[in-house]
Simulated scan of single mutants.
Amino acid sequence: MNRTLRATAISLVATVAATLGLTQPAWAASYSAPLATAVASLPVATEVRTGYNRDLFPHWIDADGNGCNTRNEVLIAEATTKPTKGSGCSLSGGRWYSYYDNAYWTLTSDLDIDHMVPLAEAWDSGARNWTTSRRQAYANDLGDSRALAAVTDNVNQAKGDQDPATWMPPYASARCRYINEWVAVKIRWRLTVDSAEKSALTNWANSCPNSTISVTYAY
């Protein structure tokens, strides 16, 4: 099941359960609020980088055993022109849009798959207390289309592990979308923010449309 269909299915389960007055399992619990309210709800805590290692987040796994790892699943899902899938899930003939910098690409080598909230930032914000299996689930999250994004490789590298207090997409028209998606991922995985990050998100929320953020919490 691709990540869009999976997210839709989970959301449907949560909606039906709520309608019937049933207790929802933790993985199906949902959250919905306007952007400004969502930002205000984010808990503030000091970030702790101690002990971080990227290898503590096993990623680019083939979760469903179909021969395509997470990186390629994202590329297939986000292609504006669908690629041909060859041996070993090699992809060719596709076209992709990097919304961070308003650029189009036809070679997968020109694209990185960005963790919207970088792995190091997630560690700092609570993932250091998770099990390895939960960190793996985070690093390969296909259950919410906002968690991972195919973007221009050098733009992603410029972002690194920065949060919105120190980095925003170079394409100005992408920034409100970016803030919405950042906040959604923080809420989905119940991650904290530091004070500078909270201030930056609040300032952006005050200048962006107060659109509703709907999230299904990660299991």
Rank of each mutant, 00 (worst) to 15 (best):
N69Q: 04
N156D: 09
Q24H: 05
W167F: 11
A9M: 14
A120V: 09
V183W: 02
T202S: 14
R54I: 06
I113L: 01
Y104W: 11
V48H: 13
A36S: 15
A184V: 08
T81Q: 11
D112Q: 07
P83Q: 12
T166I: 03
V39F: 09
V39S: 08
R49L: 11
S90L: 15
C176P: 04
C176F: 12
R134M: 13
W204H: 12
C176G: 01
G126P: 05
K159A: 09
V193H: 00
T212L: 11
C68P: 01
T46R: 12
E181L: 01
M116I: 04
R6Q: 10
E197S: 09
L91V: 07
T8M: 12
W182F: 08
V193L: 11
N180S: 10
L201C: 08
S90K: 15
Q162N: 13
G160S: 11
Q157P: 05
M1C: 12
S109M: 04
W182Q: 09
T192F: 02
T131E: 10
K198C: 05
A158I: 02
W96P: 00
Y99W: 15
L56V: 08
G51P: 07
W167G: 04
N140V: 00
V193K: 03
D153L: 03
V13L: 13
S199W: 02
A137M: 01
I213R: 12
D144W: 01
R3M: 01
A28N: 10
Y99I: 04
L148H: 00
A79D: 03
V151I: 15
L42Y: 08
T192Y: 13
A18D: 13
R134Y: 09
D55N: 15
A205S: 14
N140M: 01
S11Y: 10
R49Q: 10
T212H: 05
W27H: 10
K159S: 05
L111K: 00
S133N: 08
A40F: 07
T152Y: 03
G126Y: 03
T4W: 13
P43A: 14
E121Y: 08
R95V: 07
L35N: 07
A120K: 13
S30C: 04
V13D: 01
Y138G: 02
G88V: 07
P118W: 07
L91M: 02
R6F: 03
L20C: 07
Y171S: 06
Y31K: 11
Y217M: 04
I76C: 00
G160D: 12
A205T: 05
A200H: 05
L119Q: 03
D62S: 05
D64M: 02
N129A: 11
N53T: 07
T4A: 15
